[in-house]
Write a protein that binds this DNA or RNA. Structure first.
Lengths: 271, 271
DNA sequence: TCCGGTGTTTCGACTGTTGAAACCCTGTTT
DNA sequence: AAACAGGGTTTCAACAGTCGAAACACCGGA
């Protein structure tokens, strides 16, 4: 998970954040990216001192979150991290049920199928089935992205709580390409259209040669908890494909929502 | 580090531990145990205050380690915990390769097959295949246990670095049953025999009606990194079974060590 | 409307945390 | 052999950050 943003290093920003804990979290994230590092290396990577890194690692090791190699010079994630991951997966009904849906979607469309959720003001890919074709968009589970550009992200933003939407629309809208919508007003209208239509089609907003078609996934309460999408190279996006992808995404998103206990109408408008 | 299990609430014990980080780690562990809890409940469970728990959760949520329910009253593990788990698993060659070995061992012996590693002064089960029989010992991945009692744990202790062995032998040896070895001298001799024999048989040391047969697993450097064991009810432990289990454990432990790149002799004595 | 319970916020005292620098150890170079 | 280089570990005292207590806000039920 090469990151997309998260660093924001020391920036506490919001109150209530306990700096030491935040640093420990960052260290854990860095360690996941670069296993087999030593104290010095990790200290440099996180921009802190050796002593602090050493003490953080020491603390985390005692709880089993990190593991010291026998040679005692190298760290990697520990077994506790592993169990936590298992527990987290078991605690989330979403991922388990989504797996077959993603598989079907990827098979039908021959493109990458992704499941995205919102995490604060970012989107994050929590499950993924890659296209069987050799030319495909690189995607990775755990990768963070924006909320204001791309089909999947925009579906999430369209159905996010108003305070989140306002925060994103109020903040700076990064232009990844010439086609990225950077006007708050224009974006707001786009989100409204997405809510009306029940799906989003975005082309070249994040990468000039990439498209994405996405639809919302709802839980039993009707809340939009994820977006299901396909993405691929625009070169393959002729009219027939577009239609086929749209139908496949809509149907699979509906199937997934049904599995999660939602019994509402297909194009219900919310948020 | 007198503690035996993870809880030990606030007890920092050793220097170098950063208390806030340690508390965050404990909170995460508790949250994994009882997902869907609120601030107050978690505060009580971890023996801290509401304010602290709230701030810890707030910090961890910002990094995606925990997730707040939409209703904003309930917490569970977040997606970051999930990816960390995946990464941790990928970073450990042990678990992946052990899976088929455990399956074969469970099938051959018809008993629980376990893979244990040492974590500080505890043993922890990192993978497991349950017995197909209805009467079987309860076991769970992630569960911590002692090092001085039981077959798997004693194999780990027998091959642990001397400082660990001395610390455990020097500390209090909890008597789980009348058969638990609580004399340091006796235990030291037992460990020596285990190293000589290349396997451990323990009966009724942790639970009066449970036996366990275990053998060491080595990596390419020849270091003992885990113990492979079967456990079951003593009622099923007749002479024939014992022999069959011992052979199965030894052979499978050898197979696993080979898979991990070890090319030494079977009964090599180390540590 | 009041009540019991939860989650959130404020506040100042004080303690735990921090960076710097010294120290130690192991492997490599001279 | 001795000096060196590069990591990991330990110490220390200052002070920033954390903590508990208590007040506040919010919600649903009686």
């Amino acid at each position: 998970m090469t990151d997309g943003k998260e660093e924001k290093s020391g920036e506490t920003g919001d109150a209530y954040v306990i700096a030491s804990v935040d640093r420990a979290a960052q260290l854990l994230i860095k360690l996941a990216e670069m296993p087999g590092s030593g104290v010095t290396e990790l200290a440099e990577a996180t921009g802190t001192t050796k002593s602090l890194t050493f003490r953080l690692l020491y603390t985390l090791e005692r709880r089993g979150f990190v593991r010291k190699d026998a040679e005692r010079r190298i760290y990697s994630l520990g077994y506790r991290a592993m169990f936590m991951g298992d527990q987290a997966r078991r605690q989330s009904p979403l991922i388990g049920t989504a797996e077959p849906v993603l598989a079907d979607l990827a098979k039908r469309t021959q493109e990458n199928a992704l499941l995205l959720v919102r995490q604060g003001q970012d989107s994050v890919c929590i499950a993924l089935r890659e296209s069987p074709q050799p030319l495909r968009i690189f995607a990775a589970v755990g990768r963070l992205g924006p909320l204001h550009a791309g089909g999947g992200p925009k579906v999430l933003l369209a159905h996010a709580p108003t305070d989140v939407r306002d925060a994103v629309l109020g903040g700076p809208l990064v232009a990844y390409t010439g086609k990225t919508v950077v006007s708050a007003e224009e974006l707001r209208e786009s989100l409204e259209r997405i809510r009306q239509a029940g799906f989003a089609l975005s082309s070249g907003e994040i990468d000039p040669n990439t498209f994405s078609i996405a639809a919302p996934v709802r839980d039993q309460s009707g809340e939009v908890i994820a977006s299901l999408s396909v993405n691929g190279p625009t070169a393959r996006l002729d009219d027939a494909t577009q239609e086929a992808c749209r139908d496949a995404v809509l149907e699979n998103a509906m199937t997934l929502s049904r599995m999660l206990g939602w019994f509402g109408e297909q194009y219900a408008v919310s948020g």
